[in-house]
Computed example of a mutant assay.
Amino acid sequence: MNKNILVVTGSPRKGGNSDILADSFITQVQERGFSVQKYEAAFHNILPCKACNACWSKDHPCFFNDDFNVFSTMLEAADVIVFVTPLYWYGFSAQIKLAIDKFYAYEVPQCPKPLKIKESAFIVCGSNPSEQGYQGIIQSYKDICAFTGWKNRGVLVVPGVTEKGDVRKKNYLEKVKKLCDNFKSSTEEVE
């Protein structure tokens, strides 16, 4: 079975550290035989969830017609989701959080297309040099996994990177490879 991996990024800075990490992950899992799509949430018009509970009332997840309804086709095709974001004020970037908040549409009773995602991973980077500063966002990610039932295949924290390309200088791309090793080849079954 060929797994479809969806990599969702949250940085508004093209070619920045989280973008480099995401692209490294994508290249390495493609080499392992996975199908991969990348969705750059920062470059799409996703409105905040308004808690209107009108999900699916117009034949698409969100009542409001924004880019989440286009993204939803990628989301519905995914078997695995990987979030890649810079750390912004000890949490997800606003751009990726807008997309994550709208996953709510897949948890409502009237959802006609439940997600088939079974596995996930998380990559976060930022200028904060202490890994302790990332504990809040890591806990948020783990809570999402617990709520959805996704098997967490790993968390990669990349602290102390500020300038574009810092991840290359500090050999974090090798750690991305180790994270990719947590995913079995596209033909192996997941336990």
Rank of each mutant, 00 (worst) to 15 (best):
V70Y: 10
L75N: 02
L21R: 03
S93D: 02
N182T: 07
N128D: 12
K178M: 15
F103Y: 12
E31N: 15
V84I: 04
K50G: 13
L47V: 05
L21G: 02
E189N: 06
P159W: 01
F122L: 03
A94Q: 01
Q110Y: 09
K50E: 15
L156D: 01
P159T: 05
V155G: 02
K58N: 15
T27G: 11
F68K: 03
A54G: 09
M1Y: 10
N45K: 12
A22V: 05
Q132I: 11
Q95E: 09
Q30Y: 07
S120Y: 02
I144P: 01
K175Y: 08
T85F: 01
N152C: 11
D59P: 08
A51S: 13
L173A: 07
A99E: 04
E40V: 11
H60I: 13
N45S: 12
M74T: 09
P109S: 14
K58E: 15
Y104H: 15
G16V: 02
K116M: 08
T27R: 15
V157F: 03
A54I: 03
K14D: 10
G165V: 09
M74F: 14
R13N: 07
W56H: 10
E76Q: 12
C62M: 10
R168T: 10
R13T: 05
K118P: 03
Q139S: 11
F147L: 12
K175C: 05
G160K: 02
L98F: 07
L156W: 01
K177F: 15
K38D: 05
A121E: 00
I123Y: 00
K113R: 15
A54T: 07
V176P: 01
G10R: 00
K177T: 15
L21H: 04
C62V: 08
N4Y: 07
L87C: 01
Y88S: 00
N171A: 13
D143S: 09
K14M: 12
V8W: 01
V176A: 03
W89F: 14
S185N: 12
F122W: 02
K142Y: 05
K164A: 13
P12H: 06
I123P: 00
I123C: 01
G33D: 11
F147V: 06
K102M: 13
D143V: 08
K142H: 06
N152G: 06
I46Y: 01
T9W: 02
S127G: 10
Q37V: 08
P159Q: 06
L179T: 02
A94G: 09
K184Q: 09
S72T: 13
L115Q: 03
K169V: 05
K113P: 09
G15M: 10
V7F: 04
T148C: 09
Y88F: 14
S127L: 10
F34S: 04
N45W: 08
V167K: 01
